[in-house]
């Protein structure tokens, strides 16, 4: 990766209190996002949460109504030309020119970004198993995404902005994608990866941000996020325990009694306190289920901070 533009920055993307409305629809409602240089940052949220709108503002395609957005140290709206030399973008729904071939599109996008790395171009074409002589109109969704990915991954840039880039790829190609993205990071690159595919997020992302209704809900490493969510605990106790007392413990909820056992869920960082209390009642049997990634996301998608008055639309 080249870093000819001054010293290496520690923050690649910094967004604070970003706002954007479309007519009466609030798409972004004070969004914060921070992506450090050299990390793969997962950008998650339900459909219509404002992911694509955020990305379009970061690319200078749309103008925000409030808040600040800084990309590679610059203003994304004003410094389009210089900033775009340093990044490559793969849109969520890749549309290509129907009568150009895949190869022509890759070379065009590469030339517009200031040139392609020929070796990487050939390598990526082979790894993604893409026929560059086909006209774009005959490509499937997955193949159109491959065209955009090959163009982006063979460009000499510092930042990749990827909007659900693998939604049309088969599992084999998704593995190729993950490898390529990891290599890009290993060479010093930064990636903003919007995705719905949890396994992909889990295996490549260093940190994630979850947004909902145009607002940031959580940010952090997956371990930190796990820590923030709830663990399900079921225990068979020697001595009868008072359920109201249990429910009064910090971080404990969903208390109920099942077949002589007590069951509850607890915020993971309050697990220690719960175990102490249960220990005092003599534990005969204990099961503790840490949240699965699915539960973690479902939890955040569904119930986090109160939604803005109007549902945000997908932009």
């Amino acid at each position: 990766m080249n870093h000819v533009y001054g010293q290496r920055m520690t923050t690649a993307i910094e967004v604070s209190d970003l706002r954007k409305t479309f007519g009466h629809t609030v798409a972004l409602d004070g969004l914060d996002l921070e992506v450090s240089t050299g990390e793969i940052h997962g950008f998650l949220g339900p459909n219509g949460a404002g992911k694509s709108t955020t990305i379009r503002i970061l690319l200078g395609l749309m103008r925000s109504d409030g808040g600040t957005a800084t990309l590679l140290g610059g203003d994304p709206w004003r410094e389009v030309e210089t900033l775009h030399r340093r990044l490559a973008y793969v849109p969520g729904d890749v549309a290509l020119w129907p009568n150009l071939t895949g190869g022509e599109v890759i070379d065009l996008l590469g030339a517009l970004r200031g040139g392609l790395d020929e070796r990487r171009r050939a390598d990526m074409l082979e790894r993604f198993d893409l026929d560059p002589t086909k006209k774009s109109r005959s490509y499937s969704k997955g193949n159109r995404q491959k065209v955009a990915l090959v163009a982006a991954l063979s460009s000499d840039v510092e930042l990749l902005v990827l909007d659900e880039p693998t939604s049309g790829l088969d599992p084999l190609m998704e593995a190729v994608f993950k490898d390529a993205v990891r290599e890009f990071r290993a060479a010093g690159g930064t990636v903003l990866l919007s995705s719905h595919i949890l396994s992909e997020v889990e295996s490549v992302c260093d940190r994630v941000s979850i947004i909902r209704a145009g607002r940031n809900v959580e940010s952090g490493t997956l371990a930190q996020l796990r820590h923030l969510s709830r663990t399900k605990v079921t225990a068979l106790l020697e001595r009868a325990a008072s359920l109201p007392d249990l429910a009064a413990l910090p971080g404990v909820s969903d208390v109920r009694s099942e077949d002589g056992q007590v069951a509850c869920s607890v915020e993971t960082h309050h697990l220690g306190g719960l175990l102490e209390w249960l220990g005092a009642h003599g534990i005969r049997n204990l099961t503790s289920a840490p949240p699965t990634l699915e539960e973690l996301f479902m939890d955040q998608y569904r119930t986090a901070t109160p939604a803005s008055p109007e549902a945000a639309t997908g932009r």
């Binding site: 200078g60 973008y89 890749v94 549309a95 517009l112 200031g114 902005v161």
Partner: peptide
């Protein structure tokens, strides 16, 4: 959606 691909480059 094709304009986006071009305008995300230095054009």
């Amino acid at each position: 959606g094709r304009a986006e691909s071009v305008l995300a480059t230095p054009v």
